[in-house]
Nucleic acid binder design. Structure first.
Lengths: 411, 411
DNA sequence: ATTAATTTTCTCGACAGTCGAAAAAATGTT
DNA sequence: AACATTTTTTCGACTGTCGAGAAAATTAAT
């Protein structure tokens, strides 16, 4: 049902407006806040003093004197008002980061993953211990860490932090809520990594060019597996994102065997293991090893660039699956720019023609113009950034609801 | 940018709440409004008297005396406050309806389309004249008709009422704004018909079972061409919908020629002309006639049910294209129930197995359960209904913004 | 017929929020 | 030290919602 509007959520919404302006603009003066939010100066005053009293904002007294007149007082987030733990799981390592409410990185370490680890219990126990270590090193109380946000490849449940299917552990599920609840009371989030890559790229664009409004952006991650994230800027300016299991979208029902058990998924052709299988003419029903060194694929690429037909074909076939898949995506969700990340960008030259052909072969694309395709090599950084931004804006949303400052007493 | 909240939009939102309650509940008393909207009785009073003064609401003085106490006064929309013209274009005819602000049908007539009409100018001129006739018969002033909302098959531009591609006129575009602006000042809307079928079914469901919230529903229309609409219930309870050109999503790059010029679109295999082509073993590069009598397809179905292999294959092939296409849809947009409409439902028995197989072959479906599949034979009615509901709630949205009642003076 | 009971609707004062304008504050300039 | 300039806060007006009690309109009881 529609929600009724009261003066109370009026204030909530405007508090949120102030916090989001602060997120986007960094350190901001009273006047700038008023201009950006188009709230009156009077309202900005009451809200900022309120937030300051609650320990969420700090005033920066220093004034770098730019001309005559009363110097501006800048506001910024109180960094110690909350902390978040960011965990990024890749196939090679797990990265643990501690970030404060202002978004600055306070601590970070990485742990390599053993090359052929398939036992989920040892993995999750190590993860738990490492998070414990992150907390202890920080010398914070566990309650001060309000969110633990984990990114991973694979299929994630919606509504609860549970991994349903992953390239490494396959059908063995893993509930991070159950795992971490004993050691800290924080909210636990689990998200597909490419979703945050998309979120991060979309936020960069939105910050740069105005009028990205209500538009979408797709991010494709090429690697051992195939990831896809879609970010949408909504009418209110917020960017939302989701990550469908694009790698396991059916490409060809008679195609090769996929790690998920089906036949002809995009990943089974365009994932590194699919490319390797085609290049070495391994039978389509054989699933190669889980861990393929990047070097292997690079060697195939070298052969392809030297004119080896089968190697060329392996990449061309991968490009076809990706291109037609992207075409189907654009057919269903409308035209949108496409950003490509992951190690697979190294081989884009070998797939370009077939990828673009697939995209081109779409009613809307033929009728209008080719969507923009861009490349982003800093995938890890994008994922981390998107995760942090998403966590912090979530925290902001919680804060605006809790007008009694009991929960935000750390300072 | 996020919108600031003022006391003004506070009132707007609550006015909208009252109007939407009235839409959903029909004739409603003060107390019921207060309960449904959870607004206080005082607020309901001020808003209803305001809307009454503006001529948007009427009080129903009659009181059917249920027990002692002051009888309830019921409110309802002022039917004469606004009118909308609904135009439904099908391949056989065009249906013109006049509906008042309360949603009651005031007038309706249908005009058959000549069987092989390909000249877009004669078609649009006839359409214009028929709308003119609808206005004249109503004896209303043209300004009293606030919206003309047209539904059609084919690809519709977003943001302007322009037909970009249609089964009959193909690439000849048609701008209804330009066509109708000379004869009336109303807002002109053009929408894909299956989108409104989806909207209508979703609204039925939302009214019946609570907790449909934030869920999606896909509606597939099987006929000469293939239509798809997707409706989503948003967090605020409103149902939004869109219609991707699913019929022209690539099924098989090596497939038969489609009317759109590409090869292997779903429609080229599963549209009636695709089924006919397969059944008669016509070459894949030949596009059959535009107008195929339903009888023809029924004959093929009879032969298929009698065990004719090629006829069976024609339907099975169609089902495969549809099923795998739906599977791809579910992969990208998540699991959702599927409603099927259109004449093609008559032949569902011949396609069922292959359709369900295709849907089944999806990571999420295999992991959870098969989505519900339902059938709706009253496609025309659904489209009309969805269109009316959508128009009226649009009108409501406009009304809540215009507090100076200048525009709503008809009563 | 009159009074009491009951239910619904309206009205009034209190409270919360935003806004514009004017006052206050803090600095540079003369 | 007085003035100019810019930023921030304060104050009164206005709009909106709410709770409680008053008013209205009817049935039931006396």
């Amino acid at each position: 049902m529609l929600m009724k509007a009261s003066t109370e959520n009026l204030r909530k919404q405007n508090r949120g407006l102030i916090l989001s302006a602060l997120r986007r603009l960094g350190s901001v003066s009273h006047t700038e806040l008023s201009q950006w939010t188009s709230l009156s100066s009077a309202t900005v005053s009451t809200i900022t003093t309120e937030l300051e009293k609650e320990g969420i904002l700090l005033r920066e007294e220093q004034a770098p004197s730019a001309g005559r007149g009363r110097p501006r007082v800048k506001f910024r987030q109180n960094p110690n008002c909350a902390f978040i733990a960011i965990v990024r799981i890749t196939s090679e390592m797990v990265q643990y980061s501690l970030v404060d409410y202002a978004g600055t990185l306070k601590d970070r370490f990485e742990e390599k993953r053993p090359p052929a680890e398939t036992d989920i219990d040892t993995f999750s126990n190590r993860l738990k211990n490492d998070i414990q270590r992150l907390i202890e090193r920080s010398e914070l109380q566990p309650e001060q860490i309000l969110t633990v946000s984990i990114t991973t490849k694979g299929l994630v449940a919606s509504g609860k932090p549970e991994l349903l299917w992953s390239p490494v552990f396959e059908d063995k599920t893993m509930n991070f809520e159950d795992l971490l609840r004993p050691i800290l009371p924080a909210q636990i989030r689990l998200t597909n990594d490419t979703q945050f890559a998309a979120q991060s790229i979309a936020e960069q664009r939105a910050a740069k060019l105005r009028g990205f409004s209500n538009r979408k952006l797709a991010t494709l991650s090429l690697s051992h597996s195939i990831g896809l994230g879609i970010a949408t800027e909504e009418a209110n300016g917020k960017i939302s994102s989701f990550a469908p299991p694009f790698g396991h979208m059916m490409h060809d029902p008679n195609g090769p065997l996929c790690r998920c058990g089906a036949h002809g998924c995009i990943e089974s052709i365009a994932g590194f293991y699919g490319i390797l299988r085609t290049a070495f003419e391994v039978d389509d029903d054989v699933v190669p090893a889980k861990f393929i060194p990047l070097k292997e694929i690079e060697n195939i690429a070298v052969r392809a660039r030297n004119g080896d037909h089968q190697s060329e074909y392996a990449f061309r076939r991968a490009g076809e699956a990706l291109g037609i898949g992207l075409g189907r995506l654009l057919t269903l969700l409308g035209p949108m720019p496409i950003a490509i990340t992951g190690h697979g960008t190294l081989f884009y030259d070998l797939m370009q023609t077939s990828i673009l052909d697939g995209i081109q072969n779409t009613l809307q694309v033929r009728r209008n113009k080719m969507p923009e395709v861009s490349f982003h090599t800093d995938e890890g950084h994008l994922i981390f950034n998107g995760n942090v931004q998403s966590c912090l804006s979530d925290l902001d949303s919680n804060i605006i609801s809790e007008q009694n400052g009991t929960k935000w007493k750390f300072n």
